[in-house]
Simulated scan of single mutants.
Amino acid sequence: MDGGAVYGVVAAVFIAQYNGITLSFGDFFIICLTAFLTSIGTASIPGSDLAMLMLVIRAIGLPVRGASLLLTINWLMDRCGITVNVASDCLMVGVVSRFTNLPPRDPSETQFDPVQEEERMIADNRV
């Protein structure tokens, strides 16, 4: 849920700037920490970032005014968050693969020819 955490921080900073509020380092730290923790517990469904966002902006007492602007582009931002999630998952698979130094699996264990598999299944049913 990396995309949700990034969206929570960026959206909270946007709402603060929209309302003319200057954030201190402590406010920014609380926003980052709250976005990180809520992204862990947020469901992986489209649109769940809005509920998380409300928790993040209320954590430091930001007004909700300006959140309706984010609602209009939430569909696009949700797709960008999914892209970040997929990219980070792929990166972690690459890192784990690189540092575990495991040999590649035998392709015959995981990949099969569909025609041969179908013929085997038909032969098993005849017997």
Rank of each mutant, 00 (worst) to 15 (best):
D2R: 02
G3L: 08
G4F: 04
V10G: 00
A12F: 15
A12P: 05
I15L: 08
A16Q: 07
N19Q: 12
L23H: 09
L23K: 06
F25G: 04
G26Q: 14
D27H: 14
F29N: 13
I30L: 14
I30F: 01
A35F: 05
F36Y: 13
S39L: 07
G41F: 13
A43F: 13
S44H: 09
I45N: 03
P46V: 14
S48F: 13
L50Q: 10
A51R: 13
I60V: 11
G61N: 06
G61V: 11
G61R: 06
S68M: 06
S68H: 07
L69Y: 05
L70S: 01
L70H: 01
L70F: 05
L76D: 12
R79A: 06
C80Q: 12
G81M: 15
T83Y: 15
A87H: 01
A87Q: 02
S88F: 12
D89S: 09
C90D: 02
V93R: 02
G94L: 12
V95F: 12
V95P: 03
V96S: 04
F99N: 01
F99E: 08
F99R: 14
T100D: 14
T100W: 12
T100N: 14
N101Y: 08
L102D: 15
D106I: 10
D106N: 07
S108Q: 04
E109K: 07
E109M: 11
F112N: 02
P114D: 15
V115L: 15
Q116C: 11
E117H: 04
E118V: 09
E118D: 15
E119W: 09
E119C: 08
I122Q: 13
N125S: 09
R126Q: 09
V127D: 04
V127K: 09
